[in-house]
Design a protein around this nucleic acid. Structure first.
Lengths: 221, 221, 221, 221
DNA sequence: CATGAATGAGACTTCATTCAT
DNA sequence: AATGAATGAAGTCTCATTCAT
């Protein structure tokens, strides 16, 4: 990489770091492009060389940070030699929760954006840059399990939405309780969700039947 | 109510309605106070007579709309003569989902704000204006159930976060699937969550034991 | 005075008192009519029943307060049985300085407005309401003096401007020194001014000659 | 100086000139920033690039104009070869009075602000920009005098307050008389003030004694 | 590539004044 | 006489974006 090329990266990097710092401390709305360039030590015009606007840099930051979150959890899992899909899943959840609890500003930032859309973007980014098929890895873990699951994608979706949504409230506002208090319930709930999505031929709990089941709850609509 | 008093309410109402209309169509960020007063047909100063700023009217709208959502679902439940706590809960969820699916702009507005914090505010509002203790009613439903539940508040919290978070993604972005497709899974998941929170003396599933259970998932931390 | 009449006066009085309170604490520019009526406990419209605008009530307040200042000093002089014009003048100055030093907010308010224009207004007001010819009284004091003075009006003007201007700086900003330190110099200066205006036939210090004197200070203009 | 630098100065200058023009004609309160930028031919934002607000540019203007006033008077004095402290002082006063009489709008602007505080600021500014110790120069003039003066600073303070205060009234309102008529009295008064501050060992007119003198004017306090 | 002075549209907010009650 | 809700003109200030250097 040439000296010029290096300098280019340094400026872009400075903008990323500064923007993240400001977004997490002052919030998106109260952070101006002037703030960012001033703190990053680059000129106003330089910002527009790399980003379209404030929202552009934010989106790129969210994807990056969310991807990082998952990728670090995955690395930790590898080191931990946990066996069994269920245990692995709980490990990943706890690892991410620990990180979010420590860096609550990070949680506030990706906050309620840690949803399916961003999750997929994060996957995407991993795939692009590191050629790392994140979702595929999840499927691999699943394959090694004894249990078969209906709709693995919807299973993951359900868990991610539940975890992100509840942890946001518990960590940032301690509402209705703090994370420490809620965590056991969360794990228990995840266990139940796994059961709900577990494939069982004889039980009539398959997706096809579920409509019938849920429909019969009501005598009118 | 005097003529003056009436006119006052009319202005305030116009502001509320117009603000909601604009927030749901243009979004909060792109809606200006000038927009609101212009469309509401009142003077700019009048806005500041009733609201501190844009965020003030938004918060009041969210509480109001969320409260309305629950209160209408409750009314429908009363009319429907559904028996059994589980069936009642599913009915309420479906009623709200139907409404949100129809009025997806409403969902986009209260969106991810339909969280515990707002939920409590909505309760509050109901309590204030109609002397209707919403949460109490939920506890009443629960009492009539044969099954006993641990931590009713955390149970409700878990369900509300799950429903609001997943329905947002499914309804507004059809991600990962549309609501029609996800709905049976959601109901099934709720059933499982109910089981998870069900109090059973002999089974060792009580909250006290859950820590042990969730802890054993990992061989290190 | 009727009950109605009384109520009228009470409101007007409340407006005066509140306005003075606010002008001296917040300053004229930062005091709004809303502030005044709110603190006075009357309606907005009522203000306009009695005053044209903020400046109207301010001017009336200044005249009133300045008049009060002089009239109280005069009363104190009467009680004090001071004899001799020079001593009487010094007494008046000291009395006013004492009062201004105590009520420095009053000084800040009438501040640099305690000039000839306002002074005359204050005289005017006294003349109107109490039929008390203030300036006449000054002339009377002067008449009783052994010494004759040229241009009594200009003498008074010079002294008032000097006293008000220097005391403002000394009392409010202790610049260049505090009043206690400056006061002896002020009295000494007043003594000299009296000499300067003293009429003396033989000395060539008459007004007519003064031009000559002051002209010769320069060899060009 | 680069083209860019030059253009920058031109804009700032235009703002200064326009602001002064408007402040002196319309007054501070009635001059808006919109007025200023419009007349200066620059954009609104440009104003805020150089000044915090209206009061910022006013303060900078006052200091600058007051400094200019003194510095030009000093230059004229140098050219005039006037000898003797008293004559020099009268020359300076007359020079400034002439200028203020001609540019009465300038007087109205720095008006009653030509007080000790601003005077010192003006000194400061001179010292900063031209390395010209204005007050020191005054002391130098004083040193060359035969007569010794007590508290040279208080002497200057007294004279400046007197001159600025009275000339304001005479020039702007011709109250109680026009400047032409008052000027001889003013010079005479200045002469007397000089006497009052003149140091005389034998006479008991020293500062220490003055308290006694001024105290004896009253038989009570 | 990088800069940063300049822009100017437009957001927000205040507040003197009116007028129907 | 008294009220106070409503007004809307007028002001302040911000900030994303451009472009000549």
């Amino acid at each position: 990489m040439g000296k010029l090329e290096l300098n280019k990266m340094r400026k872009k990097s400075a903008l990323y770091n500064t923007a993240f710092e400001l977004f997490t401390t002052k919030g998106l709305a109260k952070t101006t492009i002037s703030d960012i360039v001033e703190n990053a030590g680059v000129a106003k015009g330089t910002f527009y060389l790399y980003f379209k606007d404030k929202y552009d840099i934010r989106n790129k930051l969210i994807s990056h940070k969310a991807g990082e979150l998952f990728s670090q959890a995955r690395d930790a899992l590898e080191q931990a030699h946990v066996t069994g899909f269920t245990a692995q899943l709980h490990f990943l959840v706890d690892n991410i929760l620990d990180r979010l609890e420590t860096e609550s500003d990070l949680l506030g930032f990706i906050s309620k954006n840690l949803s399916w859309g961003v999750f997929k973007d994060a996957f995407q980014e991993q795939a692009d840059e590191d050629d790392f098929p994140f979702f595929q890895e999840y499927l691999n873990l699943l394959d090694q399990s004894d249990v078969q699951y209906d709709s693995p994608e919807l299973l993951l979706f359900t868990i991610i939405e539940l975890v992100s949504s509840t942890s946001y409230s518990c960590i940032l506002h301690s509402q209705p309780v703090c994370l420490a208090e809620y965590r056991p319930y969360l794990h228990k709930t995840i266990d139940c969700i796994l059961q709900a999505f577990a494939h069982t031929d004889e039980s009539g709990l398959s997706a096809a039947n579920m409509n019938v089941i849920s429909d019969k709850h009501f005598d009118q609509n």
